[in-house]
Design a protein around this nucleic acid. Structure first.
Lengths: 137, 137
DNA sequence: GATCAATACTTGACTAATCAAGTAAGTATC
DNA sequence: GATACTTACTTGATTAGTCAAGTATTGATC
């Protein structure tokens, strides 16, 4: 097995383990890691608002995956629906006040876990890793 | 967001995209990436044989996940069931001839994809990446 | 050698996501 | 302004996995 294949396999396995661990730790806040990704993505938008398609794109899900995922999140008031005045096809998703709160709390928990997961790495390795991961694909 | 959190998020997102892409390319061989992991894990055993629990451990799945996953793989004759003479609780999984063939062919496809995914990285970065990923968790 | 606990599964009920097909709205063309 | 195409979803059916509970077998203890 060549080095490229090895790195891809290692990456896949490492990430699978890692996200399961994140899932477990985020469950304290009543959300999954995928749901965290939604909150995270929305919170990075200045308007805290996005279309479902844009959201799907950014978290690597299909449009239908997003629809299914947002339904329970809306019931929990983590997000709100808004209409786009210009285009009635678009259903905008907005991060709610509650959603922002949950996001902040969850981020604290997640960061702690992330820090312990990367405890064996020094600062340089972490920076390098972010940089190199960005070059994949 | 600190660097540790950032690297974990980047890792999760990169890997998610990556494995979906691998899934699509492996579908040419009629298997998913998870199924490839089974074949890969078994093929690395000298006896090409493992218990279901050991397999579950190695691919980060639950025992029941393994049971569900192996059923269709057995019907396709990718694997075979064997009994452990010493311990009747254990149901051994063996990589079949067909399974080895599919594994070899799938590996070719997967390696090509892995190479294109890591085309932007030089040899040193790849080695470094494998090394650093091993230190996570 | 009976009993109790642990191990290695399997199964039923459920969740998360996919795909294919459908709907509704917008865009372009004649 | 009708026709055809595209976009932004939503929904039904299916697949992959989880967890909790159940079964069978083994090992340990009295």
């Amino acid at each position: 097995m060549d080095e490229s294949t090895k790195v891809i396999m290692t990456l896949a396995k490492t990430a699978a383990k890692l996200t399961k661990s994140l899932d477990r730790c985020l469950s304290l806040h009543g959300i999954s890691f995928s749901e965290y990704l939604v909150l995270d993505t929305l919170s990075q938008e200045p308007s805290k608002t996005m279309s479902r398609i844009a959201l799907a794109e950014s978290i690597n899900l299909t449009a239908s995956g997003v629809t299914r995922m947002l339904n329970p999140m809306e019931k929990l008031h983590l997000i709100e629906k808004e209409k786009n005045v210009r285009d009635a096809r678009i259903s905008l998703v907005k991060l709610s006040e509650t959603g922002e709160e949950v996001y902040r709390d969850a981020t604290t928990t997640l960061s702690q876990r992330a820090n312990s997961q990367t405890a064996g790495l020094d600062k340089g390795e972490i920076k390098q890793l972010v940089r190199v991961l960005g070059k994949i694909n």
